[in-house]
Write a protein that binds this DNA or RNA. Structure first.
Lengths: 190, 190
DNA sequence: ATAACTTCTTGATTTTTATCAAGCGCACGC
DNA sequence: GCGTGCGCTTGATAAAAATCAAGAAGTTAT
C-alpha cells in the first residue's frame, strides 16, 4: 500500500491522515499474464494503480488489434469514460505480464470524493496531468514522422523495448511492425 | 452569462444557487480577430468559455505553425498545463474571428474550488470528458488514413470548412494543405 | 482600379510508409 | 528431439502522402 502513498506524496502534498484514508480504500489485486482487467463493451467499475507489471489498452478495428497505450509501474489504469460516465468500455485492458495492483471500485471512489476534499483536488490534478500528456501525444502525430516518433518512444521509455512485443509498440506509435523493424535496423547500421 | 449556466446544466445537474455562484465568477471578455488569448512561453492565468467566435491553438515547430485544435461556441479554452500547474504556456491561442467569452482568472477559479464543492466535481468531469475526446483523437491517428480523418472531421464539424482557413484544418488532422485539397476535389468528383 | 497578398488548387516528382510474401530464430508442447 | 507457432526481419512492390513549383481566385490595402 505504501507505494501508492509514496507516489501520491511525490505528486502533490497531502496530510498523512488523509493519505492513509485514501490509500486504505485501495485493495491489493493480482493479475496473471494474459488476464483481462476489462473487456471492450463491458462496464469498467474500478480504477487501479500499478505497482508492478505491464498492462496494455487496445481495441479491435477491422479484425486488427490497435494498441492505444501500455501502462507500467506508477500509472493508474482504467477506462476513464466507462469508470466516470458509466458508458460501455471502449478498450480491452489486458495484463502483458503478471501484475500487482491496488484497486478501488466506483462506490469507494465516490465515497472518497465526498469524505476527503483533498482527494477531489488530487483526482482532478491526476486527470489534468494525463490530459496534458495526451495533448502532447496528439501533437507528435501532427508534425512528427514515424521515425521521429520511434526515437521519442525509445528516449522516453527504453525499457518497453525489452519487455513488450514490438508489434504492440509499433501500433502504439502509429506504424506497422515492418516499419518499426526497419527503423530499428537503420539505427543499428547508421 | 446565462449561456454558460445553460451549458453547465446540460452537462451536469447543479442547483440554481450554485450555478449562479459559479457563473457569477466569470467575466465577459471580448477578442478581435487576430488577438492573442495566450502567447507561447507566457503563463496562462485564465480559463474562458466561448459564446461566439473561433479560437485556434497552435505551436511553431521548425518555423511552421502546427494547429492543435480549433475551439468554438460551447468550448472552454485555456492552456491547461499552464493554468493548473503554473508552467510556461505551450500554445499560442489566437482568435480566428471576433469572439465573445466569459473568463475566470486563477484566483477566482481556486476560490470556486474551495467555496463550491459541486464545482470541484463539475470541473473534474469537464476535464475527464476532454481527456476521453483526446484518447479518441489519438486512436484515430493510430489506425485511420488521412482520407478517413478528413471524412470524420467533415462529419463532426462541417461548419469549420466554411469558417476556417483550410490549411489550419489540414494541420489539425495531420496532413499538408495539398493533401487536404486533393481529398476535397476527390470527393467532389467521386 | 490596381498592385500585392493570401489562400487554395493542380501537376510532377520524391519520399515515406503500407502491403504482400517469404524466411529465420526461438520458445513451447507433445 | 522435433514439429508448430509466434515474433521479428527482410525484400519487392504498391499506395499514400509530402514536397516543390506554378498558377488561379479571391481579399486587402493603397
Amino acid at each position: 500500500m505504501h507505494e501508492l502513498a509514496t507516489y501520491i506524496k511525490l505528486f502533490f502534498p497531502v496530510a498523512e491522515d488523509e493519505l492513509a484514508a485514501i490509500a486504505g480504500q485501495f485493495r491489493p489485486l493480482e493479475f496473471a499474464k494474459g488476464d483481462y482487467f476489462l473487456k471492450q463493451g463491458r462496464y469498467c467499475d474500478r480504477l487501479a494503480f500499478i505497482t508492478s507489471g505491464l498492462i496494455r489498452l487496445y481495441r479491435e478495428v477491422d479484425g486488427k488489434e490497435v494498441t492505444q497505450w501500455i501502462s507500467s509501474k506508477g500509472y493508474f489504469v482504467t477506462d476513464l469514460a466507462s469508470f466516470v460516465f458509466q458508458t460501455p468500455g471502449r478498450w480491452n485492458i489486458q495484463a502483458l505480464t503478471d501484475c500487482t495492483l491496488y484497486s478501488i471500485d466506483r462506490t469507494a471512489y465516490q465515497n472518497l470524493n465526498q469524505t476527503i476534499p483533498k482527494w477531489q483536488e488530487l483526482d482532478k490534478l491526476f486527470v489534468a496531468k494525463c490530459f496534458v500528456m495526451l495533448e502532447e501525444r496528439i501533437f507528435s502525430h501532427l508534425h512528427m514522422t514515424a521515425e521521429e516518433r520511434y526515437h521519442r518512444l525509445l528516449a522516453d521509455s527504453p525499457e518497453l523495448f525489452n519487455q513488450v512485443p514490438l508489434q504492440y509498440l509499433a501500433s502504439m506509435i502509429g506504424m506497422t511492425p515492418e516499419t518499426l523493424s526497419r527503423l530499428r535496423s537503420k539505427q543499428l547500421k547508421g
